[in-house]
Amino acid sequence: MDVFVCAGCGAELTVPLARVPLPVEAHFSYGHGVMPQLMAPGTYAVDPEPSGPPFRPWEEIGEAEAAARGLFAPVYPLSFGAPDRIVVAPGDVRGTRLIPEHSGDACLGMCVGELPSMACVACGLLVASRVDDCGLWQAVWIEPNAVRRVATGLPVPARELEPLAPIDPLGGWSDAWQAATGAALADLLVASRGAPLALPDGLLSEVFGAPLDALLPPGPPPKRVGLAGPGLPGDGLDIALVPYDRVTGEPWRPAGGAVPVPLPDGVWAYLALPGETWPLPASGTLPDGVLRDDYPLPDHPWYVFRPDHHAFRATLARRPEVREPWLRALFDRGF
């Protein structure tokens, strides 16, 4: 567990936090309503790439400079802000005061501006930016040069795999699910090397089937795609959708040489862990001729699930394979 302290005076600015992978959806906006918080309480993530202002047009960046940053296809807008910003849940911040006038071009709340919008109470150093504008995940982004990470020596609490439902509280498809599957769709294309993919029946097919049918040519022999992770070795798979390792943050390594495609823990757990699917009593059976009328049908939005195309393009742009003509054509065309 770590705490972040002010680089100016050493005052503690957060509660003890455990590091987790950066959520795929961190930099994407959705709709015009109030969004939930990005990070779970007690966790933090680090964005290794530059984020926030200033921005430069892609056309000003040469291929060599872009490739040095790990970009192999156009990204708009291209940030030249600080790398390694730290993101935490707003409720995990301590010892700061808000400076609303430092907010950026916001609509109904605050977003990242030219200057950080949170200052250390003890010394006044600008340390972080509060984000809560409409369509943006609620979060506090901490400036890496304004803080120091201090190990507490406390053990990281054991975390169980908690399934994340694909339906949001308002009855629509989850934004986090759409972002996660958009990124995974890009990695599935890279792993396919242009061959058709065979998906198991069920939610995996509902999520990825239509986009893959549109992006990859039909024909045998398809590569087998499935789930692998704790309790699922992934035997016989060519490509395995896997969770992140709970300790290292690296994608789970499936057995048998299958190519891993990572999914956030909650999405993977919902797909992999069994849930209640059979409307029968806990013990015994219903009498003949008796039908239950109190078992709800699964929630299902009225519109077709679509992986997030922004996450798809952002992920594919960071894969060197996108320079291959067939993948670059799919990047330009979308799905």
Rank of each mutant, 00 (worst) to 15 (best):
P163W: 01
G236T: 15
L17G: 02
P230I: 07
L203R: 11
F312L: 15
D294V: 04
E59Q: 12
P77T: 08
L241M: 10
F305R: 05
Y303I: 09
L330E: 04
G266A: 01
D294T: 07
A119M: 02
A89E: 03
A119C: 04
A89L: 06
P100T: 00
G202E: 03
C107F: 12
A180M: 03
R85Q: 12
S79H: 05
L280I: 04
L78N: 04
V156E: 09
G266I: 01
V150P: 08
P16Q: 08
T315I: 13
P163M: 01
D201S: 10
G10D: 14
G104L: 12
F28I: 13
A255D: 11
A7S: 14
R292G: 02
E65M: 06
P155H: 07
A240E: 11
D47L: 14
A151S: 15
M110I: 06
A272T: 03
A89H: 14
S51Y: 06
L185E: 01
A66P: 03
L78F: 06
I99R: 11
A176G: 10
L327Q: 01
V259R: 03
A191G: 04
R97E: 13
G124A: 12
V242F: 09
S129L: 11
G236P: 12
L22K: 13
R130H: 14
T315A: 14
R19G: 10
G209T: 00
P53D: 04
A311Y: 15
G256D: 05
M39C: 12
G81D: 07
A67C: 03
L126P: 04
G229C: 06
G31W: 09
V304S: 12
G135V: 07
A122C: 10
R306N: 09
V140G: 02
G334E: 10
P166V: 01
M110P: 06
D238M: 08
L280F: 03
W177N: 00
P307Q: 11
E162I: 05
S129I: 09
D213M: 06
V261W: 00
E276V: 00
P233E: 11
R333E: 11
V20D: 00
A122D: 15
C9R: 09
R319A: 15
G52Q: 02
A311W: 15
D294L: 04
A139F: 09
S117T: 15
W137D: 05
G124S: 07
P16H: 12
R94D: 05
G124C: 08
P221Q: 02
D238Q: 11
M1F: 10
F208H: 08
T315R: 15
L291A: 14
L271D: 00
A240S: 14
P296Y: 00
V267F: 05
P53C: 07
P53H: 03
L71I: 14
R313L: 13
P200V: 02
G334A: 09
P163C: 01
A40T: 12
V207P: 01
A255M: 14
P100M: 09
L203C: 09
D288H: 06
G33M: 12
